[in-house]
Amino acid sequence: MRHLTFAALVALATVTAASDAAARGRHHQTGHVPAIVSHEAAKAGVPQRIAHAVIKTESGYNCRARNRSGAAGAGQLMPATARSLGVRNVFDCRQNIAASMRYLRAAINRGGAGCAGVSLYETGVGARPRCSAYGRRVMRSASL
């Protein structure tokens, strides 16, 4: 009887730990977030290496990330940008990454698939395309 009770406790602890990790946005440990990035990048027509480099740079694949300026989620979308892209919950991995890839596609369309275009992801697609330290960091991360 003790072994059954202990086994039940171990099973409960495992389930609880897994749900706690998911609630904290640690999906990247299971490969969940990178798979979403790959899927949404393909849908948006964004080069895979650039897409992954942006999400890695922005949040380290953390869907619960938030910064002081108010940007949130895996793609670190600002609230107004997220709303304009139809995101209802910035901490929903799929919504945030899908919107981030659409925004990155717009940035690349305007500034090209190099440093200047990637830099527009951070500065805003309405800004003048120019290579920034952010763009260089992303391009280095993408090995481009």
Rank of each mutant, 00 (worst) to 15 (best):
A13R: 03
S38V: 04
I108E: 00
G45P: 03
M101F: 06
G31T: 12
A11Q: 15
A80P: 03
A44T: 02
M139F: 11
V125I: 15
A18P: 00
R102G: 04
V90D: 02
G111W: 00
S119Q: 06
Y103F: 07
G124T: 11
L85S: 07
D92E: 13
L104A: 01
T57L: 07
R94L: 10
C131K: 02
S84R: 14
A74L: 08
D20L: 15
L12W: 11
A21F: 09
G60Y: 08
G31F: 06
R2C: 09
I108D: 00
A21P: 03
F91G: 03
L144N: 03
H39R: 13
R105P: 02
A11N: 13
Y134P: 01
A98M: 13
R49E: 14
A22L: 15
G86F: 10
A107Q: 03
G112I: 01
R2K: 14
R64E: 09
V138D: 02
L104I: 00
R94K: 13
A35H: 13
A116M: 00
R88T: 12
A42H: 05
C93N: 05
Y121Q: 01
V54Q: 00
I36C: 08
V90L: 14
C115R: 01
Q95K: 07
R137E: 14
E122A: 11
V90R: 12
R83Y: 07
S143I: 05
S141A: 12
L4G: 11
M78K: 12
R102V: 04
S59W: 06
R140I: 10
G117Y: 00
A41D: 08
T57A: 15
N89K: 10
S59N: 09
Q29E: 14
R136K: 13
G73Y: 01
R110K: 14
A80W: 10
P34L: 10
M101S: 08
R88Y: 04
H28I: 12
G114R: 01
A42D: 07
G135Q: 07
A74Q: 04
F6I: 14
Y134W: 07
A44P: 03
M1C: 08
R68D: 12
R94C: 07
A99P: 04
R83A: 14
G117D: 01
A11H: 13
Q48E: 14
A72P: 01
M139Y: 07
I97R: 06
H39V: 00
S141Q: 09
L120G: 03
L144I: 13
C131S: 07
M78Y: 09
H52M: 09
N62C: 07
A18E: 10
E58P: 02
L4S: 13
L9H: 06
L12G: 12
A80F: 11
M78G: 08
N96K: 06
G86D: 09
Q48F: 07
V15F: 12
A99R: 03
R130I: 02
K43A: 15
V10P: 03
V138C: 10
A116C: 05
A142E: 11
A44E: 09
T123H: 12
A98S: 15
G86M: 11
G25Q: 06
T123R: 13
S59R: 02
G31K: 10
Y134E: 08
T5I: 15
G112E: 03
A113H: 01
V118H: 00
A41P: 05
Q95F: 05
V37W: 01
L77C: 06
